[in-house]
Nucleic acid binder design. Structure first.
Length: 344
DNA sequence: GATACGTGGCG
DNA sequence: TCGCCAAGTAT
């Protein structure tokens, strides 16, 4: 296989079928002189970490409408940013997003670094995001490797080594096909291919622009690659959440910065995250039943308790609540406790 | 290097 | 119903 043939076919496919996304500048607009805004590209890439385009789009629109520039975001209160991120998951990303925006304003004059190495030094920016922003915004021929690229390369070269062992080799292979011309469009093309054609299950090899170049397709094993080591079973944890209302206010606490749902608003809870505080105050708590939720590494059955009387709590504080500001686990508890306030 | 860290959709 | 999976990073 000629390496240049791979990027050439991908770029042709991308130009003909590029998907429209709010953070993207289409090839035609770039030809007319438009450049991607590093602030918007960075934000989209952080949101897209382990997250689908479908889930990200509405969040991206809200964030960029509310905070149009990195300086606007840097000036935002922590609680507002965490509330806006609620429901998107991996909340360390939101904390790092804010820390990064503030670092860009404080240490870089409000301008993102224009190299992958410079980006890499910012909070929440790892090898992938640094390379993606540098390639997309500045056409640095950085090697952009995400889960899509790993899958495409494993199939293109029929690499049988299972992940994560195969990772360094996949990065090496990705480097061999990364072009000097239009590396930003190329990076997006490979990721689009992985998201739409070279999918994890049932890849659409028949319409793939790399048909004829792909070793796994020729061998008939595309759908089996990349191979992966078996993952450990998820244990089931049990917990309790305490829901108390006082008039229009609800008893809430801000979770610790580190750890599960870090930095997010939550009902006082116990038993599932290593804590055992007990109820926030003595009352005849009524068990409303349980909500189920699955985290990355365990399943959770969370009993939801409701107080019919209120008292001065030992933890948390009463405050008005917009349920959209809660992480999804706590939103499930809210919906169980206040079914009449749940839309639909 | 291994582990922690969310969520929603799909087959 | 349930396991897998998604444009990863921090420690």
């Amino acid at each position: 296989m000629r390496d240049a043939e791979v990027s050439q076919r991908l770029l042709e496919w991308y130009d003909a079928a590029a998907r429209v996304m709010p953070w993207r500048v289409p090839p035609a607009a770039k030809a007319a002189g438009m450049r991607p805004d590093p602030y918007r590209v960075w934000m989209s890439e952080v949101m897209l970490q382990q997250t689908t385009v479908a889930a990200v789009t509405a969040y991206f629109q809200r964030f960029t409408s509310r905070w149009p520039t990195v300086a606007d975001l840097a000036a935002a209160p922590d609680a507002e940013v965490m509330a806006e991120w609620a429901g998107l998951g991996y909340y360390a990303r939101a904390r790092n997003l804010l820390a990064c925006a503030r670092a860009v304003v404080r240490h870089h004059g409000g301008v993102f670094p224009d190299t992958a190495a410079g980006m890499r030094a910012l909070p929440g920016v790892g090898p992938y995001t640094a390379a993606a922003v540098a390639a997309i915004c500045h056409d640095e021929p950085a090697v952009v490797v995400d889960g899509n690229v790993e899958r495409v390369m494993a199939r293109l070269f029929a690499l049988e080594t299972p992940l994560p062992t195969a990772k360094p080799e996949l990065v090496r292979l990705a480097a061999t096909v990364t072009p000097d011309q239009r590396p930003g469009d190329y990076a997006q093309a490979v990721m689009d291919l992985g998201a739409t054609i070279c999918t994890p299950r049932k890849p659409a090899c028949g319409i793939c622009p790399l048909l004829g170049l792909c070793a796994a397709q020729r061998l008939g094993i595309a759908a089996e690659l990349p191979r992966k080591l078996a993952k450990p079973e998820k244990p089931v944890r049990q917990g309790v959440a305490w829901v108390a209302r006082r008039g229009d206010q609800v008893l809430l606490e801000r979770r610790a910065e580190r750890g599960l749902l870090g930095g997010m608003l939550a009902f006082p809870s116990d038993g599932w995250d290593g804590t055992t505080h007990g109820a926030p105050f003595e009352s005849d708590w009524r068990n409303l039943g349980a909500v189920k939720h699955t985290f990355t590494h365990f399943h959770l059955v969370l009993q939801v308790m409701l107080a019919s009387t209120t008292a001065n709590p030992q933890r948390g504080e009463y405050m008005p609540l917009n349920p959209d500001d809660l992480p999804t686990l706590m939103r499930k508890a809210y919906d169980l406790a206040f079914p009449d306030k749940t839309p639909r």
